[in-house]
Design a protein around this nucleic acid. Structure first.
Length: 471
RNA sequence: GGCACGGUAGCCAAGUGGUAAGGCAAUGGUCUGCAAAACCAUGUACCACCGGUUCGAAUCCGGUCCGUGCCUCCA
């Protein structure tokens, strides 16, 4: 099927057609760099990585922008607490973010604009909104967006402001805004901001959060682009506010497709500091889990469904990651088996299967990133080829491996080249064991197997002889 | 109160009108000196509940119950 997405704006499945023929432009909301990102944050970035790879697999050129929010209440607050300048402080977490991205094999976007590098663009945009009558400066010197001026406000989140419950967090009497729902475009400087401030036509201060994405998407992708994504929590108010700002300022439609991914939960509960169930990538790596395994857990559940990450938060034993390890091992074992047993001859049946597997795989992904369909196609392929290998019928290595490589352009967890990094002393032991077995000295053979195991390797006997691998 | 998203075998999870993909676990088998690993085989799931539409519904409509998220700066 043709590439299609469930568009949040229409709540319907829509065929994807880029604005500019083969060139796709996508904006993905990135991290606020005030702390190490947690596994829940990365669910969104993995979803965006999947989206990115599927778009490319369909033959499009892609330009992706992911912003780095490096100035806001939290970055200011925590940099002060750390006794560091804002830049030095956020630099730590920017660096950590990119390290984590690499660990999870998330492809790099084309642009990573940092908010502090685009202040003039934001100021221009705010001025534009004031000039057009969509924004005003209040008595508190802050500049606000007047949502009553934008007729379509609420169209994305389907929010009807009349029916909203005013939360505890909004105390209307503290505000000097025309309407409680108006949001800040420019926040006037207050002493608590320390030395974090920029000059503007409205006095010193700093930008609001929403204007950052409107200005940076405009600067890197233009006024009207194809896709905009983020976590479901960003839908309202963040994305709603971006639409209001950009469409009012630029006078044209902002984004064609909006995609939102659901939250990750830990053991069925929302992540929260008080439950202590925040987990970072480094923490999981430290417990021996691999980036590929984390990637698998995050990618293998459909993006619009809640993902339940199972882990014992005190011991870090994770059922989810164990299952990922099993799945990846099954796939890599298959590749190894094909490399060992398949030949040059290919049967018509397997050749046809290779073709239909690729089609089913792509069809699944094109149907709003239906990863379960795609996985089903892959596992059926593995099972059928395994059966052919067992029965001794012709299986062409090259074509089968080619299918797996095609699939791995999406998953990026497979191993095609076996690296033999077994140290010499272990290899020597393995040879000694071969001799012991030839002599039917089973006691010594088992002893050597234990020694090898103690060194962190496993020896597996197969019809082709013993294999030694890292445990 | 408003707006969303879910409830399919022990667990995870596809499937949106023609009586249910796939994975994990479990059980049996092949291989093996023994093991491990690997591979193969085996699953009729009252598709949350009630009513309706239809020749026919997990799938459409109405209602009920349960779970989750958002409702102003949390991916």
């Amino acid at each position: 099927m043709k590439l299609s997405f469930l568009n949040t704006m229409s709540r319907k499945l829509e065929e994807f057609k880029p604005i500019d023929d083969k060139n796709v432009r996508m904006y993905t909301c990135g991290p606020t760099v005030y702390n190490y990102a947690h596994i829940g944050n990365f669910r969104a970035y993995i979803f965006e990585d999947l989206l990115r790879r599927v778009i490319k697999l369909n033959g499009y050129n892609l330009t992706q922008t992911m912003n780095l929010t490096d100035v806001d209440d939290k970055t200011i607050r925590d940099s002060q607490a750390a006794g560091m300048s804002l830049n030095d402080f956020t630099a730590i977490y920017k660096k950590a973010f990119f390290a984590d991205i690499d660990t999870l094999k998330i492809e790099r976007a084309e642009h990573y604009p940092a908010a502090t590098d685009f202040i003039p663009e934001m100021i221009d945009m705010i001025q534009g909104l004031i000039d057009k009558g969509f924004a005003y400066q209040a008595d508190d010197k802050c500049v606000y967006y007047s949502i009553n001026k934008f007729d379509d406000y609420g169209k994305l989140a389907k929010i009807d402001l009349e029916n909203q419950r005013t939360g505890e967090r909004v105390k209307s009497d503290e505000y000097e805004k025309e309407s409680v729902s108006d949001f800040a475009l420019w926040k006037a400087y207050v002493p608590a901001d320390g030395d974090v401030k920029w000059d503007s036509p409205w006095g010193e201060g700093r930008p609001g959060w929403h204007i950052e994405c409107s200005a940076m998407s405009k600067a890197t992708l233009g006024n009207h682009f194809d896709l905009h994504t983020g976590g479901i929590d960003n839908m309202f108010p963040h994305h709603e506010d971006e639409i209001a700002q950009s469409e009012a300022c630029n006078g044209c439609k902002y984004v064609n497709f909006w995609l939102h991914c659901a939250h990750l939960q830990v053991n069925g509960k929302k992540m929260s500091k008080s439950l202590g169930n925040f987990h970072t990538i480094n923490e999981l790596l430290g417990h021996g889990y691999k980036g590929e395994e984390i990637r698998w857990v995050l990618i293998a559940t459909h993006y619009r469904v809640g993902l339940n990450f199972e882990i014992d938060s005190s011991t870090l034993e994770s059922k989810s990651l164990q299952e990922a390890r099993t799945s990846i091992a099954r796939i890599n074992n298959f590749i190894e088996r094909v490399n060992d047993k398949a030949g040059d001859e290919q049967s018509d049946e397997i050749s046809a299967l290779c073709k239909t597997t690729k089609e089913k795989f792509l069809n699944g992904l094109n149907d709003d990133l239906n990863i379960a369909e795609a996985l089903g196609a892959m596992f059926e392929f593995i099972r059928t080829v395994n059966k052919a290998l067992d029965s001794g019928s012709a299986v062409g290595k090259e074509e089968v491996i080619d299918v797996m490589k095609y699939i791995d352009t999406i998953f990026d967890v497979m191993t095609f080249e076996q690296k033999n990094d077994v140290p010499q002393n272990i290899i020597d032991l393995a040879h000694e064991r071969i001799q012991a077995r030839a002599d039917k000295n089973w006691g010594r053979a088992d002893e050597i197997r234990d020694e090898i195991a103690a060194a962190g390797y496993v020896v597996e006997d197969s019809p082709e002889g013993p294999k030694v691998k890292k445990a």
